[in-house]
Amino acid sequence: MSTFADPAILQVIKSRTVPVAIDQAYQRRQQDAEGVFYRKIAGKSPRNNFQGTTQGLFIAAPDGTFLGYTNSRVPKHVLKIINQSLEKYQPAQVAVLARGKSDLQYNPVPPEGGLVLRVQAKVLGGYEKTDNPHRQMEIDAISRDNLWLSRAEHEALVTGLFPPAVAERIARFHLIDNTRGEPPMWAKEQIRALDIKLHGGTVTGRAHVETDDHLRGYQPEFLGYIEAGNGVVTRFDLVAKGLFWGEGTYTRNAPKGKFPLAISFSLADGTDIADRVPPQASRGWINGYMKP
C-alpha cells in the first residue's frame, strides 16, 4: 500500500495538519520568503544540505519550528513520525509571513492568454510480471506534467497553424518517460526528426528523439484533434504513441529493450490543483522552456 493510500495517514494529515505538496528543488534554491521559510524547516532536519535533494516528508509548526522528518514511504513508519511530531506541537499565535518580492526564477506563472495542457504518459507494456507491490505501482503509473503555450501560440492554433516552437517544446520536454521518476529531457540536437501538422482540425505527425550513444530514444507518431471557437481553443486532444527505449539516472528499471509508450495532451480546465504546477522542464529557466 502506498503512503497516501493508508486510511490512518489520510485521516491524520487531513484533520490535524495543513498539507502542502512542493517540488523542493525550487524552495531550496529560492531567494525569497518562501525559500527562507523552507530552508528554516529543512535545515533542522537530516536533509540540511541544500546543494542536493532535500526530498521527504516534513512536519513543522506554522512559525517554522521543525517537528519531524522521514523519507520513508512505509505507512507504519510515516504514521509513527507524524504522531510523534504532533505530540511535540504546541498551538500558538503565529504571524502570517509576508510574501515580499518573489524570486522570479522560481515562481513562473502561466503565460497570460496562453494555454495550459495536461500531459500524461503511460508505459503500455514490456514489464516483467512482479509480486512486489511497489514495483507494480511503477508498472501501473501514469505520469502528469503540464505544457505551457504562449498567447501567440494559442492564437496560431486558433487560426489553424501548429507553431514550430510548440512542436519543438513538445519534442524536447514532453516526449519523455516520466512514469518512474524525474527523467532526462532531450537536447535540441537529439531531435532527429520532427514533423507535426494541423490540417482541418486534425493533428498528425511523427518524431524521433535519440541520444548520440543510441541508449535512449523515442519514435512516436501523433494523432489528435483541435477545435476553436470565439477566438479560443476549445478542444486539444492529442496522443503521441510509439516505441521508447532506455532510462535515466532517476528513471531506472524501465522495461528491457523497446517498449510502447503513449502520451496524451489535453486542455487543463483548472479543476485539478495540479493544473497550477509549472512544467517540470521549466524549473529555474522558464524562458528557456518557452523558447527552446
Binding site: 512536519i59 513543522a60 506554522p62 506541537y89
Partner: peptide, 15 residues
C-alpha cells in the same frame, strides 16, 4: 493553528 505537513519531492509530487 495546525502544523504543516510538507510533501517535498524531486519533481512536483502532484505531477
Amino acid at each position: 493553528r495546525k502544523p504543516l505537513f510538507i510533501w517535498a519531492m524531486d519533481g512536483h509530487p502532484l505531477g
